[in-house]
Amino acid sequence: MHIDLSSRTAIVSGSTAGIGLAIAQGLAGAGAHVVVNGRTQARVDEALATIRQAVPQAKLTGVAADLGTATGAAQLIAVMPEADILVNNLGIFEPKPFFEIPDEDWQRFFEVNVLSGVRLSRHYAQGMAQRGWGRIQFISSESGVQIPVEMVHYGMSKAAQLAVSRGLAETLAGTGVTVNAILPGPTRSEGVNEFIAKIAAGRGVPAEQVEREFIATERPSSLIKRLATVEEVASLSVYLASEQASATTGAAVRVDGGVVRSIV
């Protein structure tokens, strides 16, 4: 199967590292004009250089804006008023016991992980519908289905993304615009690497040992028994952005290594 996105413009929020960067690179490799986003120009420039090294012919635009705020969303929209593909990847996570999570953290997680995608989708979906083609994705998580006790606020935000994704798909029925959620499992992203490295340093053990123990104790239902790679997640995203995925919409598609113990 050959995926050709050479006539499409794609926006990937939070795409300077991890899953977002891998998705941006994958879309660029398929020929799309990709808008790379991060909070600082330095991070955006670094990501652009990384993608160009891997995909020399990449068509790229960089936009430095904090999409966890309404002001940041407006800045991006002003630079790029239309898009064919929107990947709502921006997200934050932080392990914290439930009784230690203050109101401010609940609000921050909802603002960044949920409202960022709501704001962008509210704008870009209308143009997609008018043109009769579009792809919107929410990068949720298996944590939206199996709420992790170590970060309930994160799980809440990922479950909310599933609701928004399905509701928007229903709203756009018959328009030629598909809306899907992607549910990665534990993935070797920049944030996860830092999390594991911090634990490893504190215990004086190799990071590989911490990773194995995490999967064994915190995600024992994993069928691959390892962290997924960002490239494995990005491959699903690129497919769902393609013409070939035109009949897949309103779905929560898992790339979780089998962590969720369900056949549907």
Rank of each mutant, 00 (worst) to 15 (best):
D103A: 13
N193M: 13
A83E: 07
Q126Y: 00
P81D: 09
A169D: 10
R135I: 02
L115W: 13
V192Y: 11
G132W: 08
I139M: 08
V164Y: 15
A160W: 02
A160S: 12
Q130S: 14
I77K: 12
R108L: 14
M128W: 03
V164I: 14
G176C: 05
E170C: 10
R166D: 02
A78Q: 14
Q107S: 14
E150G: 04
G144C: 05
V118Q: 12
Y124C: 06
F98I: 13
E82I: 03
E111P: 02
S143K: 01
Q130K: 15
G91L: 02
W133R: 01
F109R: 02
S165R: 04
G117T: 09
I101Y: 06
E170Q: 15
K158G: 10
E94K: 14
E194T: 13
L90P: 00
Q130W: 00
E100V: 08
L90R: 09
V118Y: 15
F138C: 03
G191L: 09
E111I: 00
F138D: 00
L90W: 01
P95D: 15
I147R: 11
I101Q: 11
N193Q: 14
S121R: 05
A163Q: 11
P97M: 03
S140P: 06
G132I: 06
D84C: 03
S140G: 09
I182F: 08
F99R: 12
A159E: 01
S116T: 15
M151S: 12
E100C: 10
V192R: 12
V192D: 00
Q137I: 02
W133S: 00
P81L: 09
V114H: 04
F138I: 02
I92C: 02
G155M: 08
A173F: 09
T187P: 05
A160I: 04
I147F: 10
V164D: 04
F98H: 13
A173R: 15
V118A: 15
F110G: 15
N88G: 05
T187A: 08
